[in-house]
Simulated assay, not measured.
Amino acid sequence: MNEELRKDIEAVLNLFVRPQLSSHGGGLEVVDLDENGILWIEMQGGCAGCPSADETVKNLVQKELVTRIPQIKGVEIDSGISDEILAEAMKLFTHG
């Protein structure tokens, strides 16, 4: 992601998203923009692990970014858990 695009993303987040998240004691950080136009974010504070985080991402974060920045096709939460760790956890749950 180039610097200009990152600045545009941060501007949209600062104006339209972060004020609403901070009113709930939360926030977010941009992790990466992949080749498919998916912006990966990390939820922070009160938003990290919140049961409504997925809904917040779709109804607030994604809506604001997709409508204002054409390069962004969607937004997903980066849990910080690798696919390998997730696969091991699933094995434990299904065989344990």
Rank of each mutant, 00 (worst) to 15 (best):
I85W: 08
P19Q: 00
Q44Y: 00
N14I: 02
R18H: 10
V31P: 07
F93A: 11
I69L: 05
D34V: 06
I69V: 06
K73W: 00
F16M: 11
D8T: 09
K91P: 01
A48T: 04
H95P: 04
T94Q: 13
R18D: 10
T67S: 15
L15D: 14
V57Y: 02
V17D: 02
N36I: 00
M90C: 07
N2F: 04
P19Y: 01
S23N: 14
S22F: 14
F93W: 12
E4D: 06
G49N: 06
Q20R: 15
G49D: 04
E88G: 08
H24P: 00
L60E: 08
D78G: 12
E4A: 13
I38F: 09
D32P: 09
Q62A: 15
L65N: 02
L86F: 10
K63Q: 15
I85K: 11
Q44G: 11
E64V: 02
G74Q: 10
V12A: 05
R18Q: 05
L33N: 09
I85L: 11
D8H: 12
G26H: 08
N36K: 11
V30Q: 02
M90K: 15
K91Y: 11
R6H: 07
G25Y: 00
L86A: 14
L15Y: 07
E55V: 15
I72V: 10
E64I: 06
I81W: 07
H24L: 15
T94E: 10
D8F: 04
L39Y: 04
